[in-house]
Computed example of a mutant assay.
Amino acid sequence: MRETGKIKLGISIGDLNGIGCEVILKTFEDSRMLDFCTPVIFASNKTISFQKNELKIGVNYNGIHKVEQALDGKVNVFNVWRESPIVKFGEATPEAGKYALLSLRAAVAALKKGEIDVLVTAPINKNNIQAKDFNFPGHTDFLAQELGGESLMFMVTDELKVGLITDHVAIKDVATTIDAKLIKSKALAIENSLKVDFGIRKPKIALLGINPHSGDNGVIGKEDEEVMKPAIEELIKEGHLVFGPYSADSFFGSDNYTKFDAILAAYHDQGLIPFKTLSFGKGVNYTAGLDKVRTSPDHGTAYEIAGKGVADHSSFKEAVFTALKIFKNREEYQELTANPLKKQRLKR
């Protein structure tokens, strides 16, 4: 149990040449944020000092060498390294990838040990972060290996939630990757997350078809008829409120999405293009299905504006609030589960 009641929020720094440090520092430049959590940035005093001076962001911080030294009411910087990395704003350099990985590994280690309660990750460059011990297409796959549970990329706002059956999979491999087992697994992961993480008692989930027009009864591919529909029918028989498959091209434009608590898309762009179009700057990338809470903003390194001081920190701030909200929802759910009388009152 947390002694102070404040959630200890870990932050991995992301690519030093991108806008990660900027959106982090801008978020906590507002001292009111410290009323909600105790932030711990995994980087170094020298790195944060350089970034805040270059970007002219007025943030005071407390340097620490152990997570337990973090002080409430302060922005804490856990010193992962002592040297001063060379920062080249807007460039994808091996050095930036090296320090992004050092920060991420240190933050995840602290999360696994319970030294921090939740993790918010600043954007990485998926190419320069690659290493012998990091051969993943992104945060989600790495976290799936490091943390318990089955990961699901879940893009969320208060009004719109979109999960993916396949995330970082090439288009040519999508149809062969999706089978009934995977569909059911992801649908159940979304349902559980909606209940536990977002407090929705009886979630309704829409599934989007794999092919254009959901295959048009087999005219445009047979995957929807032979794989998607039988999986949905099984889920319905088991008592789950899942519907579809819906034709993806008209689903969002017709506002059909507003009738559901979440949408499960077949592949990355099918889900993320409409999500980011409808909510860019407000959306959060949440890795659902894990034993620990991790969120991130819905944008990348944004090299084109890095170092200019013009980055919008709205999505990072939303990622912080979402992580805190999910953590509290999980605590409440566990309490209700452990106390049958409270759970009974909730059902009424």
Rank of each mutant, 00 (worst) to 15 (best):
K6T: 05
I11E: 02
D15H: 07
T27E: 01
D35S: 14
N45Q: 14
K46W: 08
K56E: 10
K56N: 15
N79E: 14
V80L: 04
S84E: 13
S84H: 11
I116C: 05
I124M: 10
N127R: 12
F134Q: 00
Q145Y: 11
G149M: 04
E150K: 12
M153H: 07
V156L: 03
E159G: 00
G163A: 14
H168F: 09
A170E: 14
A175Q: 12
A180E: 14
A180M: 15
K181E: 15
S185T: 12
V196H: 08
F198S: 02
I200T: 09
I210N: 00
P212R: 09
H213D: 08
G215Q: 02
K222S: 13
E226G: 05
P230C: 12
E234A: 09
E238S: 14
H240D: 05
Y246E: 00
S250F: 13
D255Y: 10
T258E: 05
L264Q: 03
H268A: 08
L272H: 03
I273P: 01
T277L: 13
K282M: 11
T287A: 07
G289H: 07
D291V: 10
P297K: 08
D298F: 06
G300L: 04
T301S: 11
A306M: 12
S315Q: 04
A319H: 00
A319D: 03
T322H: 09
I326C: 03
Y333I: 02
